[in-house]
């Protein structure tokens, strides 16, 4: 049932109020602009701190500029230099490793962790969930200090343990072959819990009746996992995989604080990520144009890989 207002009352509500003294009116004119006023703070900030810097960086990639004086038009020379810069390619390789490790090791680990946290037989569920989430709210610098002590070649706990079981100690932060795993160890500890929370939310939305019906039909645990859990989690898997991939491609603070400012890329740059390289060239060497070129290539890489990922996972969904 609808209630209609008398025409005269409706008109009186909608009638524009003409200001007599030119002040801003709360009438129709003001009402027309009000929504824009409310949403404008976001767009102003978005423009100032995202769109404008992005466009500026895009243009800057074609210039040589250290922040002082007139930028020198450089045509494609920043990109030419980049294409024969061995450290950039090393950073790309390292970042691809970080991304692959994150997608194919950390994500499945997080899913397993979420399933464990969702298990009916688990005691003190809330406590476990808090514990797994704790790394997210811990200072990165504090975590890095602790991990540097754990990874210490001479006096670290990890090597003490390895030696106690008869294995050879590893120079986690000194051996170019080991440093990427050292970074990933830190990343696993910091981020698996958060990803598990996403998966846990997805798992809790799967109706129990599906599992009960599958059990009645004779499905075992593995079958229930592949035919109920995974298909039901598709949207969550897509979401998590996209944020994991973007996060891994942009990895910066974990290796930066783990290796420290002395050699932020680790020994022989074996742990250097693309964003670390961008930072060192842009902020350290004040090569804003060159760093912008690195940033643009990273942006294109993330964009293309995200598209591919969406396509693949959409296919997986179909």
């Amino acid at each position: 049932m609808s209630v209609s207002q008398p025409a005269s009352q409706a008109e009186s509500v909608q009638a524009p109020v003409q200001p007599s003294d030119g002040r801003l009116s709360t009438g129709a004119g003001g009402a027309r602009f009000a929504p824009y006023m409310f949403i404008s703070p976001f767009f102003i900030i978005f423009f100032l701190f995202f769109l404008f810097p992005t466009a500026f960086a895009l243009v800057l990639g074609f210039f040589n500029w250290r922040g002082l004086g007139q930028p020198e038009f450089f045509e494609l020379r920043n990109y030419e230099r980049l294409m024969r810069d061995p450290i950039f390619f090393q950073a790309v390789q390292n970042t691809v490793f970080y991304t692959g490790f994150s997608l194919f090791i950390i994500m499945p680990l997080a899913l397993l962790e979420a399933m464990a946290l969702n298990a009916k037989i688990l005691w003190f569920k809330t406590l476990w969930r808090i514990l797994y989430f704790a790394p997210i709210v811990t200072s990165t610098v504090a975590v890095a200090i602790v991990f540097r002590m754990l990874y210490n070649r001479e006096f670290g706990l990890i090597n003490e343990f390895l030696m106690s079981i008869g294995l050879t100690p590893v120079d986690w932060l000194g051996d170019p072959n080991a440093v990427k795993f050292a970074v990933m160890g830190l990343v696993v500890w910091r981020w698996t819990g958060l990803l598990a929370v996403y998966f846990l939310a997805g798992l809790q939305s799967i109706p129990d009746t599906l599992y009960e019906a599958a059990s009645i039909d004779g499905a075992n645990g593995i079958q229930r996992f592949f035919y109920i859990t995974i298909p039901s989690l598709r949207p969550v898997i897509l979401f998590v995989s996209v944020i994991v991939m973007i996060g891994a491609l942009q990895i910066f603070d974990d290796p930066q604080v783990l290796f420290g400012s002395g050699s932020p890329g680790g020994p022989a740059n074996a742990g250097l990520s693309i964003v670390q390289y961008l930072y060192s060239r842009g902020i350290g060497d004040l090569l804003y144009g060159y760093a912008s070129a690195v940033g643009l290539l990273l942006f294109i890489g993330i964009f293309v890989l995200s598209l591919v990922q969406f396509r693949l996972l959409r296919g997986f969904e179909d």
Partner: peptide, 9 residues
Amino acid sequence: LGDDHWSGV
């Protein structure tokens, strides 16, 4: 290596 030369144990 690295910052361990300046700080750390």
